[in-house]
């Protein structure tokens, strides 16, 4: 068993896998720049449904995605084995250490376990995500696939002050939603960055302008910057913003958020101990 863990948990493998992941993601990022719409369509789609179809249609733009999953899968196995080996060695050695020294020595293993947990959370999200985007207007009803019927009771926009250079631009929007429940509507307030949670689904506000009178910019036809969808730098008409409800369910979030917080706290404490604190010799 120990020999097996030594081989698959070798730190040299971890090093080269991390560099391989960095290289594959760098190549992927370049491909994303040239295929924004295609790769962006993966957001909100389940990887096992999206990948087979797009791998056949656009192999040149998607080949790196399965490779990335393979690299992270191998990194996960390597990390698990390496961490198990380290903890098995640390437990007997820890008997002669102070409690704090033992915790400092154990911290990297905990960080690695949390890293594994977060990789699992991402995988869960990629495989199980549900996403829907529905255009809505004030006074209208919309049928959301997973949440049911919702009525947009009112929409109000808050703009930047008139005496500022941002005048006429939306600062915040507020939408009152009504969910019919046994004949009595249940209301919820939806704003940008303040989603509504309902039955395990996150409902968010999204928006684009309806009309555009300015000349579209030629540069960066495919970009994640959506400023011109919301606002214009040049003269514009009075077209009100087009509003959407974005409904998401991502089970990976329940794993990711606790993992994020725990890993940052432990990592900060560990690096403080080994660089500035009293646990410098505990590594």
């Amino acid at each position: 068993m120990k020999r097996f863990l030594d081989i698959i948990g070798d730190l040299r493998i971890a090093f080269w896998l991390l560099l391989s992941a960095a290289l594959v993601m760098w190549i992927g990022s370049i491909i994303c720049l040239n295929n924004y719409s295609l790769i962006d369509s993966l957001n909100g789609s389940r990887i096992q449904e999206w990948l087979p179809a797009h791998l056949r249609q656009h192999p040149g733009a998607t080949w790196w995605i399965p490779l990335l999953f393979l690299v992270f899968f191998l990194l996960g196995i390597n990390t698990m084995a390496c961490t198990a080996r380290r903890i098995l060695n640390l437990i007997p050695a820890g008997r002669g250490m102070s409690a704090k020294g033992f915790l400092v020595a154990l911290s990297p293993s905990i960080i690695h376990l949390l890293f594994m947990l977060m990789l699992s959370g991402h995988l869960l999200g990629f495989a199980m995500v549900e996403f829907e985007k529905v255009p809505v207007r004030q006074g209208e009803e919309a049928v959301l696939k997973n949440v049911g019927t919702v009525r947009v009771a009112s929409v109000t926009h808050q703009f930047f002050p008139r005496d500022s250079l941002l005048r006429g631009r939306v600062r915040q929007s507020r939408m009152i939603l009504e969910f019919p429940r046994q004949g009595v509507p249940e209301t919820a307030v939806l704003e940008f960055l303040r989603p509504v949670y309902r039955g395990g689904y996150i409902i968010q506000l999204d928006m684009e302008r309806k009309k555009r009178t300015e000349t579209p910019r030629i540069a960066d036809p495919e970009t994640c910057n959506r400023e011109t969808h919301f606002n214009f730098s040049g003269p514009k008409n009075a077209g009100s913003p087009r509003l959407y409800l974005a409904v998401t369910r991502d089970p990976g979030l329940f794993v990711l958020f606790p993992g994020f917080i725990a890993v940052i706290l432990i990592m900060g404490w560990y690096f403080y101990q080994v660089t500035l604190g009293s646990g410098r010799n505990a590594r």
Binding site: W26, S29, L193, C224
Partner: peptide, 21 residues
Amino acid sequence: LGWGSVFRWGSRHLQSAVIWC
């Protein structure tokens, strides 16, 4: 909070992950 997911497939997120790795 803004887009309902913690990671998005796009050059910005991938390049951050490159630096981290």
